[in-house]
């Protein structure tokens, strides 16, 4: 039990190291990314620039700069942004994380439930109009860009039809913390949840349908039919249960990258101050400390989520349990 855990920890550290070096190197290799000028302000005198360079350590060798930044990020946790009057980066991420988690968690719930329902129904009614309609809807969902869908729903719910009975309950853009006002939290998030979930519903329902249809030709499905079980039971207890293994691995990765900041577009469109929004800000300002912090945060999530998926595998698939 301890050894796999340690191994996983080692992997995490290795991944984080690799990514951080890469981000650091790319930043300093980017022309015009020199932060000195930006920190010193417009039309700063050469003396000021020199002073800033000295103060922030930009004149020191790059490995030293890297080590200093890592120390500030992970150990003292007082890494300050190059813009925004030197705002501390770590608390900023801590404030943004719950927003992203709320957004992605809700959306994930919607997309898992909807995708399982749609995929299973489509497989059950294979080659009928039900199947075709659902799969067409899925395809449309995949094809709609999330930022466009977000803008359109904003247009409809916030301005065009906001004063009708249908959308008058929709609060303005922004985020209300769960601890402050649960109902308000729900109301602000329900639209972004649906918008974010649409594409994933499309992908997941199509994948699940394909998987279930392929499984229908398996020997054990024939055995289940020969046992005289009902078609519903065969599809759910034998087909769907077996397909869940694929479904879970797909889900783990998508969920992790969204929590790590992948829901950037949705967050920006709906004005949610989440990690994605922060990343977006950091990139537009070329703010290395913030970029570094968000990337590290994201990487940690992907690694942790992978570990969780592996654990779920053990639970879902007895064959994996023995292979260890």
């Amino acid at each position: 039990m301890l050894l796999p855990l340690l191994r996983r920890l080692g992997q995490t550290v290795f991944v984080l190291f690799g990514i951080s070096v890469l981000v650091f190197a790319v930043f300093f290799a980017t022309p015009g990314a020199d932060p000195t000028a930006r920190i010193a302000g417009r039309n700063a005198s050469p003396q000021t620039l020199e002073k800033v360079r000295q103060e922030y350590g930009f004149n020191r060798p790059i490995p030293v700069q890297y080590a200093t930044m890592m120390k500030k990020l992970f150990i003292t946790q007082d890494l300050a942004s190059y813009v925004d009057r030197g705002e501390r980066v770590v608390p900023e991420i801590m404030r943004a994380a719950p927003v992203t988690l709320s957004l992605v968690g809700g959306a994930a719930l919607i997309w898992v439930v909807a995708a399982i329902t749609m995929g299973t129904l489509a497989a059950a009614f294979k080659d009928t109009w039900v199947d075709r309609t659902l799969m067409l809807l899925g395809l449309i969902g995949i094809s709609i860009p999330v930022f466009w869908l977000g803008q359109v729903t904003n247009l409809v719910t916030q301005s065009r039809y906001h004063n009708t009975w249908l959308f008058s309950w929709v609060p303005g853009l922004g985020y209300i913390p769960l601890s402050q006002d649960p109902w308000g939290w729900f109301k602000t998030l329900v639209t972004p949840w649906c918008v974010l979930a649409v594409m994933f519903i499309g992908i997941y329902s199509r994948v699940l349908r394909a998987d279930l249809v392929a499984l229908a030709n398996e020997d054990f499905m024939r055995t289940a039919r020969a046992k005289g079980l009902s078609p519903t039971r065969i599809l759910l207890r034998h087909g769907l249960r077996t397909s869940l293994v694929t479904f879970v691995s797909l889900f783990g990765l998508d969920f992790a990258q969204l929590v790590g900041g992948g829901a950037l577009l949705t967050e920006v469109v709906f004005g949610l101050p989440g990690v994605g929004h922060l990343t977006y800000q950091a990139l537009t300002n070329l703010d290395l400390p913030l970029i570094m912090a968000t990337v590290m945060y994201s990487a940690v999530f992907v690694v942790v989520a992978n570990a969780l998926v592996d654990m779920l595998y053990l639970f879902l698939d007895p064959r994996v349990r023995d292979a260890r």
Partner: peptide, 13 residues
């Protein structure tokens, strides 16, 4: 009915 390949005839999970 019993089938040819007992390896794949049971649901693995």
């Amino acid at each position: 009915m019993i089938f040819q390949d007992p390896m794949t005839a049971f649901t693995p999970v």
